[in-house]
């Protein structure tokens, strides 16, 4: 039963994702959202990508989620927000999106069936940080630069958008 950890992590990730989508209270959703990258890190590990698993834990569960937590704290949500959220989540609202998502799921699953299966004897060989690093600073150096530009742009725009919050209150007339 070497597949057990994979199945376990998978179930946890799927369950957590569903909980995120269906929670009325933002903090609850956020807590479930932390579970998703953590369990996915486990999945990565079982897939033989320990480096990716580490980054997933550090950056996603560590950095991005903390960002979310801070924002939720600053929003100062209360009981009224939860009630409004419940109101917004009436069953009828889910029909269309569920239909679309279901269709997408079916279509993707059918696509997946076209992938030839791996040979059962083919052992999962881990791909370590070294090979990834060699690729990153070899043929993919341009995309590293692009990623850095993207992050810089994100930084600048986040700073720009948040610039006036304290200063002039709304910043608008």
């Amino acid at each position: 039963m070497s597949d057990l950890p994979f199945i376990l992590f998978s179930l946890v990730a799927a369950w957590a994702a569903i909980m995120v989508v269906t929670r009325a209270v933002a903090v609850h959703a956020l807590l479930y959202l932390v579970v998703v990258p953590l369990s996915l890190a486990g999945v990565f590990f079982t897939l033989g990508a320990p480096f990716a698993a580490m980054l997933e834990v550090i950056i996603y569960a560590g950095a991005v989620m903390v960002l979310f937590v801070f924002v939720v704290m600053m929003l100062n949500l209360g009981r009224s927000d939860r009630d409004r959220e419940r109101h917004w989540m009436a069953p009828a609202v889910w029909i269309g999106p569920a239909l679309l998502s279901g269709l997408l799921l079916i279509a993707l699953c059918i696509t997946l069936r076209t992938i030839p299966p791996t040979a059962a004897s083919d052992a999962m060989v881990p791909i370590g940080p070294q090979s990834v690093g060699l690729l990153l600073y070899g043929p993919y150096v341009l995309s590293v630069e692009l990623a850095s530009f993207l992050l810089l742009a994100g930084l600048v725009s986040a700073f720009h958008i948040g610039r006036n919050i304290r200063g002039t209150g709304t910043g608008e007339p």
Partner: peptide, 14 residues
């Protein structure tokens, strides 16, 4: 929603 619908249609066609 429209983007998703378009994706679904494109996928179905593909």
């Amino acid at each position: 929603g429209w983007i998703a619908a378009g994706t679904v249609v494109a996928l179905c066609l593909g």
